[in-house]
């Protein structure tokens, strides 16, 4: 029995959430009182494996194969099936990245096992893991257990564990290189090189003040009101995903898992419910102000200042006060 964390990298660079997953794995292995393994996957990634070997891990497992140079669901799940056969872990943990959303459900289903996605925490009861995950767009939390014997699969949400909590090892851990036989003909998808569309016109990451709008803005004709507030505060205007999906603001002003990640001094959320996809992009802000009509909106869980009110009454009042101040 062991805990296995599967890390993610691209062209020899860590995905930033890989370390968070290692932190989660260290905690899980301690709670379950079992060995802790970390898998590093890709092509020519032995240097990354050596980096992990310095952490507090029982063993580093290297899945190095030319077929793993580019991510494919078929190639990666073949490799991980073989690793799981050889290592027999009780629990396999992933960071909840876009790649993991593509891969882990397939891997778990191929073994007839459950995958608890996007967990925000874990504890052990009766020697079995209990995961906490969010439901109903973050309005409620649930404790989730898994039936049958392992291997069980779970992914941890961005920011649920801290990368700087990863403990170093007392000595360097061994690196075990697995013999893989990946059937290249079984890889059905042909991926091209990742690319970026037109460069981001605005770098919201540099903004110290951000006024951000969500569904509560109701109509594209109301956007100028938020714009006026951003101007009065000397900040940038941003939005949650649905606003950009509707074309009310360009995609490069989107905050969240599919947009930009920001940590300004002030983040003023107007009519944003606080779904996790948005929150991961802004919860690092120093001060968060939320204006929302719904007192149950999850955005209030992370706000420093909350205003339960109609944003169309608050915004003009704020603009007036700010402009009078100058």
């Amino acid at each position: 029995m062991s805990v296995l964390v599967v890390t993610e990298q691209q062209d020899g660079h860590w995905h930033r959430m890989s370390l968070e997953a290692i932190a989660a794995g260290q905690e899980a292995a301690r709670a379950l009182e079992c060995p802790f393994l970390v898998a590093v996957m890709g092509s020519n990634v032995s240097e990354l494996a050596a980096e992990v070997a310095a952490k507090r891990v029982s063993e580093v497992v290297l899945l190095d194969d030319p077929c793993l140079e580019q991510y494919t669901a078929d190639g990666f799940s073949q490799a991980l099936r073989q690793a799981i056969d050889q290592l027999q872990p009780a629990l396999v943990l992933f960071p909840h990245t876009y790649q993991v959303r593509d891969l882990a459900p397939k891997l778990a289903a191929s073994l007839g096992k459950p995958f608890v996605s996007d967990a925000i925490g874990m504890r052990v009861e009766n020697k079995r893991p209990v995961f906490v995950r969010q439901l109903f767009q973050g309005k409620l939390n649930g404790d989730v257990t898994m039936e049958d014997e392992g291997p069980h699969f779970a992914s941890v949400q961005s920011g649920a564990y801290r990368a700087d909590a990863v403990e170093d090892g007392a000595s360097t851990a061994a690196i075990r290189s697995l013999d893989l036989s990946i059937d290249a003909a079984g890889i059905r998808a042909t991926p091209q090189q990742p690319f970026r569309e037109a460069k981001d016109a605005v770098d919201l990451g540099a903004a110290e003040i951000i006024v951000s709008v969500g569904r509560g803005i109701q109509d594209p004709d109301n956007i100028p009101q938020a714009e006026a507030l951003a101007r009065a505060l000397g900040g940038e205007l941003a939005a949650s995903r649905p606003i950009c999906d509707n074309g009310w603001l360009p995609l490069d002003r989107q905050i969240g898992s599919s947009g930009q990640t920001v940590s300004p001094n002030l983040y003023l959320a107007l009519g944003i419910s606080g779904a996790i996809q948005h929150v991961v992009g802004m919860k690092g802000a120093k001060t968060i102000v939320a204006v929302n009509k719904d007192p149950g909106a999850p955005i209030f869980e992370i706000a420093d200042y909350g205003i339960v009110a109609d944003l169309f009454e608050i915004v003009p009042a704020l603009v007036e006060i700010l402009e009078a101040r100058e």
């Binding site: 007839g112 459950p114 939390n141 404790d143 039936e147 009454e313 009042a317």
Partner: peptide, 26 residues
Amino acid sequence: RQRLQRLYQPQQTQQTEFLQGTSREI
């Protein structure tokens, strides 16, 4: 294969200060 054992209101991680009054006062 996975069971929801308990559903509950999330705990506040942040002490939110709620502002009250008229729009102007808030």
